[in-house]
Write a protein that binds this DNA or RNA. Sequence first.
DNA 1: AACGAATATTACGTTTACGTCAACGTAAAG
DNA 2: CTTTACGTTGACGTAAACGTAATATTCGTT
Lengths: 125, 125
Amino acid sequence: MPLEYSISQLSKEFDTTTRSIRHYEDIGLLSPSRRGQARVYSPADRTRLKLILRGKRLGISLEDSREIIDMYEPGKTNLDQLKKLIDAIQQQRTKLNQQLDDITKLLKDLNKAETDCVEALKSKN
Amino acid sequence: MPLEYSISQLSKEFDTTTRSIRHYEDIGLLSPSRRGQARVYSPADRTRLKLILRGKRLGISLEDSREIIDMYEPGKTNLDQLKKLIDAIQQQRTKLNQQLDDITKLLKDLNKAETDCVEALKSKN
DNA sequence: AACGAATATTACGTTTACGTCAACGTAAAG
DNA sequence: CTTTACGTTGACGTAAACGTAATATTCGTT
């Protein structure tokens, strides 16, 4: 496991574009260090990117992703800050469970659609 | 269960807007019948809307939703049409399983974040 | 008949999440 | 020293998914 990554390395690894990664930086979701003016990404940066993209696949907006990701940051040891976080986590959990429900339903529907298709194919022979 | 619905009824039931519902019609995802110029939605229309919104919650684009939803339509008994559908279903299933994976991982992360928070809170007392 | 509530159409505006140049710096290879 | 590959910063463009008037119509009620 490398200790640092270039922007194109990450874009390839996660099948995204350098433009997107820079965009995430533009809106403050990433802040890689620099060597000269070139971006240098740490494993931690890479993890953040991974989380962002995972969120994307779940239809989570970048704005919302920021909140979620910030939860994992240490040093957020302010007291009522913590309570806020716990609350946010609850909300996210609710949303995710809803999605889980949606997905199982969709998978069920897909299964039915498929068997229907297969049946229809059979009856053609 | 009613035999028909008005646009505002549906917008309330599914917590969306009449504008959105009309938009779905604009792009051909819905085609309710009319009484005069007023839209009249059948239970089938309602189901389609439900599927659209479920897809939305999963970050599925309206364009992709169209494909999925059309799978449920009967009368698609063209032969290689069917094979295409089965293929599309497979792809969707793959994507959904990926999402399932993402979600379980996120939920795990959220659990950890939460216990961390709670721990942090305890240590403050 | 007049009114308000619901619905309609038309059309322009907005937000999100990037795509797509253009113009230039940098560093290793031939 | 030039090519090649990769990187940078603007700046403008765009597609999707609606929001938001503005205006007109319809329909049951006073």
